[in-house]
Simulated assay, not measured.
Amino acid sequence: MYTGLQHLHSYLAYLVLLGLLFSIFTALGGWMQNRPFVDKDRKRALLGLIPTHLQWVIGLVLYFVSPLGAANASGAAMKDATSRLYILEHPLTMVLAVVLITVGYARAKRLKIGKARFRSIFVFYGLGLLLILSRIPWQAWFAVS
């Protein structure tokens, strides 16, 4: 089960990145062109939101079943950069990113002006993406197996 979740979490990350990039660029285009925000734009924003939430749920489960996650939490592990990344930095940063992305989507739903709705998605999804990119364990992505 652990290996399957780990692989799912790793491969779903690509979908998250693609969905966020698509949503961000779509929002930027709508914002710059001053287009009205229509239902199609809301659905495009969901392409960034849904995979991100799914990834977060899988990551949360993985955090508790992985030997690198909560089971590894100790004072000694905090002194090791790789252990600290998996125990604290990666999960905490991803939670913040998911919160930002969710807030951006929720704000966009409540706002009335199309330009402000696009800007909300662009800014909050963009900040979320920057946080995600800052704490992806890149050494695991590019490790030779």
Results as ranks from 00 to 15, higher is better:
46 L>Y: 04
74 S>C: 01
127 L>P: 09
128 G>L: 08
138 W>S: 05
108 A>M: 14
32 M>K: 06
13 A>Y: 06
39 D>S: 14
34 N>V: 13
4 G>S: 12
81 A>M: 07
87 I>S: 02
51 P>L: 02
23 S>N: 07
11 Y>S: 12
88 L>P: 07
58 I>D: 04
85 L>C: 06
74 S>M: 12
109 K>Y: 11
16 V>N: 02
35 R>S: 15
125 Y>S: 10
96 L>F: 08
25 F>E: 06
39 D>T: 09
125 Y>P: 02
90 H>G: 02
28 L>Q: 11
141 W>S: 08
128 G>K: 03
55 Q>W: 08
56 W>V: 09
134 S>Y: 11
2 Y>I: 13
18 L>R: 08
84 R>S: 01
73 A>L: 11
44 R>N: 14
131 L>P: 02
114 G>M: 14
144 V>L: 09
56 W>I: 09
103 V>Q: 00
58 I>R: 07
9 H>E: 04
137 P>Y: 04
96 L>D: 03
121 I>L: 07
120 S>L: 11
118 F>W: 08
130 L>N: 04
66 S>M: 09
49 L>V: 07
57 V>R: 07
25 F>N: 09
16 V>G: 00
131 L>V: 04
17 L>P: 03
44 R>S: 06
32 M>C: 13
76 A>Y: 08
25 F>M: 10
95 V>E: 11
141 W>G: 05
93 T>Y: 07
129 L>P: 02
125 Y>C: 05
43 K>G: 12
36 P>N: 15
49 L>S: 00
7 H>Y: 15
61 V>E: 07
124 F>K: 01
14 Y>A: 01
143 A>S: 11
51 P>N: 02
108 A>G: 01
130 L>T: 06
53 H>T: 04
85 L>S: 03
17 L>F: 08
126 G>R: 04
66 S>L: 10
57 V>T: 13
12 L>Q: 05
44 R>E: 08
29 G>T: 15
112 K>M: 13
28 L>D: 00
68 L>Y: 03
68 L>T: 09
31 W>P: 03
18 L>D: 10
106 A>F: 09
61 V>Q: 04
30 G>V: 11
92 L>I: 12
58 I>A: 09
17 L>G: 08
95 V>T: 15
10 S>G: 10
135 R>F: 00
140 A>W: 15
48 G>F: 09
51 P>C: 02
46 L>I: 05
28 L>E: 05
109 K>E: 12
127 L>F: 11
97 A>S: 09
143 A>C: 05
55 Q>D: 03
36 P>D: 15
112 K>H: 14
117 R>L: 14
145 S>M: 15
14 Y>V: 06
121 I>C: 05
39 D>E: 08
141 W>I: 10
88 L>Q: 10
134 S>K: 04
121 I>Q: 05
45 A>T: 01
15 L>C: 11
